[in-house]
């Protein structure tokens, strides 16, 4: 409904949406009670908008592609390995890396809500949180992959992993052909967020 300003001498501030006001209301009450520090909220938002993102995961993948010992350690105990790289923190208590091969393609979903390895990928994209993806990834993963433009050989099995608040999965994509001459930074550019969710393949050089 268009907002009618005719009864105001001066246009007032743009009224935030109802949910936005409800969030502000909660913030006000919790701040008054001393349960939260408003500055901490800004810091959390800045962290996920600007600092933590899929480049962390891409770094891990690129290293796994070039260092077999690192890869073996990563697949055996991801938490220890990525913590050492500085990628730990919220929603990273237990991360498991699953490796794509010619035989098995892995995909990750959270059927409950949107559990996701934040230290490696940041926070999930909208589609990961949608009912459509959460329901279909389990029921018809090949069709979902096709929607993402991925067609796998028929003899490649698809395995879907359901992330929870206790275990969060990251896909180690297959290293593309022709990437032999690339250094770690060059390899990182081939690793998209979607590839680490298992909804894309690594890019080609």
């Amino acid at each position: 409904m268009p907002h009618d300003h005719s009864d105001h001498a001066h246009p007032h501030s743009l009224l935030p949406s109802d949910p936005a006001l409800r969030v502000k209301a909660l913030e006000t009450i919790l701040t008054q009670k001393g349960l939260i520090d408003p500055a901490a909220l800004d810091e959390i938002i800045d962290t996920y908008e600007n600092q933590i993102g899929p480049h962390n995961g891409a770094h891990v993948v690129a290293r796994a592609w070039t260092d077999p010992d690192f890869k073996a350690a990563l697949l055996a105990d991801a938490d220890a390995v990525v913590s050492e790289m500085g990628y730990y923190g919220r929603q990273g208590e237990h991360m498991v890396v699953v490796e794509n091969t010619a035989q098995v393609h892995n995909m990750v979903v959270c059927t409950l809500c949107s559990c996701y390895p934040w230290p490696l990928l940041g926070i999930p994209p909208g589609w990961y949180k949608s009912d459509a993806y959460r329901a279909r990834a389990v029921r018809e993963p090949r069709k979902v992959l096709a929607d993402f433009g991925v067609t796998l050989p028929e003899d490649t099995a698809v395995r879907v992993w359901d992330s929870t608040a206790e275990v969060r999965y990251l896909v180690l994509p297959m290293r593309p052909e022709g990437a032999e001459g690339l250094d770690e930074a060059g390899l990182m550019d081939l690793v998209s967020r979607d590839a680490m969710i298992g909804c894309a393949l690594a890019g080609t050089p």
């Binding site: 949910p19 936005a20 909220l41 959390i44 996920y48």
Partner: peptide, 25 residues
Amino acid sequence: PEPVFEAPWHAQVFALTVHLNEAGV
């Protein structure tokens, strides 16, 4: 890059929840 949060209030309610969790609520 697509925005991490579609609307500012999504970011606010997300941060509020994370903060409450970390504060032990």
